[in-house]
Design a protein around this nucleic acid. Sequence first.
DNA 1: TGCTGGAAGTTCATCTGATGTTTGCGAGGG
DNA 2: CCCTCGCAAACATCAGATGAACTTCCAGCA
Lengths: 249, 249
Amino acid sequence: MPLCAILPTMSRTDEVVDGIRRMILDGRLRPGDRLPVEKDLADTLQVSRGSLREGVRALSILGVVHTRQGDGTYVTSLDPGRLLSPMALVLDLQDDGAMPAFHSVRRVLETEAAGLAARRMPDGAVAEARAILDQVADVLRTTPVDHDKFIEIDIAFHRVIAAHTGNPVLEALIESFAGRTVRARLWRVLHTEGIEERTHDEHEAIWRALAAHDPEAVSLPVGTRRSQEASDRSIAGTRRSLCQPVRAE
Amino acid sequence: MPLCAILPTMSRTDEVVDGIRRMILDGRLRPGDRLPVEKDLADTLQVSRGSLREGVRALSILGVVHTRQGDGTYVTSLDPGRLLSPMALVLDLQDDGAMPAFHSVRRVLETEAAGLAARRMPDGAVAEARAILDQVADVLRTTPVDHDKFIEIDIAFHRVIAAHTGNPVLEALIESFAGRTVRARLWRVLHTEGIEERTHDEHEAIWRALAAHDPEAVSLPVGTRRSQEASDRSIAGTRRSLCQPVRAE
DNA sequence: TGCTGGAAGTTCATCTGATGTTTGCGAGGG
DNA sequence: CCCTCGCAAACATCAGATGAACTTCCAGCA
């Protein structure tokens, strides 16, 4: 006779995750609060310490709680940035076939970020972005071009922009998409001749829009706008990149 | 003397997560493959079964693996939809203050989705979207308006659109943002008089663009475009919604 | 008085072993 | 050929014990 007569579809660990989640939603636990010690919490949720630890560990990896040996387990700030960050860990498990789809979404997000930042970015940050772009000249002068260094600069440039959007969710999503590994693979999949120069030109256009505090100018001027196909092959991020399907399927 | 002389910053569980992740990246494990039994894998990674289980459980919650009692643990399809779905679980832990930021990002994503879908959506899907919108008339006729039902329809409408973008990443992100709880809270925070009618009008405009297969028309016509502020108070999803900061910070 | 150093207690980290539950599969009978 | 039953394999859960790290507090000293 099965002992699990009721609610057979939920494992103990899931009950732990749901129980702690519920405590947070109910306000019994607030950001920064400390969880009961493992023994007590295990008794409360009626599970063993092992099962409890599995659930707590899962929440820890999801960024919901943070535990320190010898001290205790605490609810994190629950910032969007922290809660969206584990997405990056899982992102580089995607096979190369999914890269164009990520790339398209990334371009949309970074374009919106640039539009937002153009209105709010202080002069100091504009200068910082300028300094980052100035490093590109050195990289492009070398032969062969240092791809890794170029990617580093690309990430740094967009990170400065994202930091001044005033939208932490947008910032966190962009940060997830900007993982070192992910972007390197993006680069490899999208690699075409002269991509560095093309991307750099678009970066320059974005910077001019930022310096002028003109969100409209984030889009390339119509007269000089490249074909949709060419635009999707750069990694700078300009408007309207999603208006073309990324896979035929 | 501490026994952990090397690599002091990584717990056993983290090593398990990283080890399995590495196996997948190296191609030793492919989607659908079965993992070694707990005992063997624990020996391979040089951890106890308890630590191994914590790591596997974490990957299970992240959607990377799937384990069935009595059978074994398998690598999932690793689809973007599956890997991005745990984001929804964590999303409703956000406090109300973060809702506007989520809302802004959601509008951008759904607008892009509509633009994409307009070009690819088959007539059958257009008819399906039409049928969903037709349910709104009934809801709006009742007094008081059934908010829950309206939200259901809103989600269903955008889900049909997302399903025809051809971009699984975009689809998965929208799905995460469309969680029942999340959208209900969005609704509560953004609630203003007449929001149902306003949102429905925008839905109708989107549908006309879909039926005409005209991605440009997804944006409201300039002549009738509402003020930015009013637009951000609807939940339909139209272009340019992020060009206004969502919080003063 | 104020500071330093260490010892004790608390808490999490990990390991080991055992038992229950579910699934898969093959042997055996109809 | 099909169905049923039982065994083995694999995960689920529990309990206890030991190790490691952090916090607190107090004694000792300048």
